[in-house]
């Protein structure tokens, strides 16, 4: 839903904010919506990276006693 900045409608934004458990007052709502749009557009360089099948460096290693 928020994978592309241009697709983020105000309604979708409000829905996601509620799902996140954030209470918005009217003034802050507009400020946050504008800020979120700028943040999401700043992720464009990330989306353009071809990561192929690279695994994220978050390898889970079970503790010895769990093996």
């Amino acid at each position: 839903m928020v994978s592309n900045t241009n697709e983020l409608s105000h309604e979708a934004f409000l829905y996601l904010i509620r799902q996140s458990g954030i209470d918005l007052d009217t003034g802050h709502d507009k400020e946050l919506f504008d800020y979120v749009k700028s943040v999401l557009s700043s992720l464009d360089p990330l989306r353009s990276i071809d990561v192929g099948s690279t695994e994220p460096p978050m390898m889970f290693i079970p503790a010895q006693e769990d093996v």
């Binding site: 928020v2 994978s3 996601l16 996140s20 990330l46 989306r47 994220p56």
Partner: peptide
């Protein structure tokens, strides 16, 4: 607050 709206897929990417 805006960090809460970044998807898990983007985080992992």
């Amino acid at each position: 607050e805006s960090g809460l709206l970044i998807t898990a897929a983007d985080y992992l990417k």
